[in-house]
């Protein structure tokens, strides 16, 4: 039973981690928070269903199409809504409220476009189940773990070792100074929101074959992803994934060895514990204002 529980915790933890990556990316590069990440995941799953399940495009092409669509949607939302609000010098809390509004709009639009029933996402791999340490697992679940790790490393390298990533971090730390250095702050922030939407959508297209696709798919996962980002260290790419995995393991172990009735109580208590004892998270990520 332990192996089953650990593998399941890893799978769901990596999904939380993918969402947490989006939160961390936006925070790291713009100092803002978005609460629409879970719905970006849902939208990614629906788009993936359309490209892969309806238009019958190969999976890799579908994945690229979804990430591109979501990247431009993220970019558009930042330009049309977030940037407009920032230009009006609103308090950061209004940006958060705007993202909550975006979240509801996406949920409702998805319901109108794709309907309210659960849609069946075709399998990505020809084999329904593979054996890992004596446990049967969907290959899509293993692919999900792999993609989470790839996204984590790629985003970390991008943010830390590329000129554009450095520019994005500089724009977040001090927009005025960054502009003085010739950095296009507006563009870099837009790209950040686009990347975050793309990462969340990747989670959605990977979850589709495992859970099916429905409008509330990303609702709870979005909240858990936020907790994961805090536990790992808000703004840290490695922390996002490690925080997600830790939360996933805590959840599954609580359900398996204590009681499923206490699963969320214990999971969110871990979040509170980190906020009180170690707000910088596992990876000791300092808040941007520190």
């Amino acid at each position: 039973m332990l192996i089953q529980v650990v593998i399941s915790g890893l799978v769901i933890g990596c999904v939380y981690g993918l969402i947490a990556l989006g939160y961390s990316l936006i925070y790291k590069a713009s100092g803002l928070m978005s609460f629409a990440q879970g719905d970006m995941l849902t939208l990614g799953a629906f788009l993936g269903y359309s490209f892969y399940g309806i238009f019958k495009l190969p999976f890799v092409i579908s994945l690229v199409c979804v990430v591109l669509c979501m990247f431009f949607l993220g970019l558009f939302l930042e330009k049309a809504i977030i940037r407009t609000l920032l230009k009006n010098h609103v308090l950061p809390v209004y940006i958060v409220l705007a993202t909550i509004a975006i979240s509801y709009i996406i949920q409702n639009a998805a319901m109108l476009i794709w309907g309210t029933q659960t849609l069946s996402f075709p399998q990505i791999f020809p084999i329904p189940l593979v054996g890992v340490l004596g446990v049967k697992v969907q290959p899509e679940a293993l692919f999900c773990i792999l993609m989470s790790l790839v996204c984590m490393v790629a985003l970390h390298i991008f943010m830390k070792y590329t000129r554009f990533g450095t520019a994005m971090r500089a724009a977040a730390m001090d927009a005025t100074a960054a502009r003085a250095c010739g950095i296009n702050v507006s563009f870099s922030t837009g790209v950040t929101w686009g990347l975050s939407a793309g990462v969340a959508a990747t989670g959605g297209i990977l979850l589709g074959p495992i859970y099916g696709v429905y409008t509330m798919l990303g609702a709870i996962i979005g909240r858990k992803g936020f907790s994961s980002a805090v536990i790992g260290g808000f703004g840290n790419m490695y922390g996002a994934i490690v925080g997600g995995i830790l939360l996933g393991l805590v959840e599954t172990c609580t359900s398996a060895y204590i009681s499923s009735a206490y699963k969320d109580i214990i999971s969110y208590s871990v979040l509170l514990l980190f906020l009180f004892v170690k707000p910088t998270g596992l990876f000791n990520e300092q808040a941007l204002t520190d």
């Binding site: 399941s8 799978v11 769901i12 996933g248 959840e251 599954t252 359900s255 398996a256």
Partner: peptide, 12 residues
């Protein structure tokens, strides 16, 4: 309601 992962419960 809203959960997507039931692996802990399934194991138990």
């Amino acid at each position: 309601d809203g959960d997507t992962d039931f692996s802990g419960q399934a194991a138990k």
